[in-house]
């Protein structure tokens, strides 16, 4: 099963890289861009056929390693 996960900084945490990307986009003429938040994307292949079990394991992986919950949120955005 393939699981897709995104990890983003919490809203309350300043994202200076996102701010710089936003400024660059504005400078390139994309004047209507008013916020950019940068994150991480993971695609994980797991030998588990049961979708809910696989997602449960992915959830544990996020909590233990993929995200730092002090500053980041994670979301499992798909499994197939």
């Amino acid at each position: 099963m393939k699981i897709k996960i995104i990890v983003t900084l919490k809203k309350s945490v300043l994202d200076p890289q996102g701010t710089v990307i936003q400024q660059a986009l504005n400078g390139m003429g994309f004047n209507d861009v008013n916020e950019v938040r940068q994150g991480k994307f993971f695609e994980i292949n797991i030998d588990e056929k049961d979708q809910s079990k696989a997602e449960e394991k992915a959830d544990e992986m996020c909590k233990k390693l993929l995200a730092n919950l002090v500053i980041e949120d994670y979301k499992i955005i798909g499994s197939q």
Partner: peptide
Amino acid sequence: VETGLLPGVLLRNKYL
């Protein structure tokens, strides 16, 4: 901080 032995986290420097 990543082990959890210390509180908090160290982010990218403010001015990158």
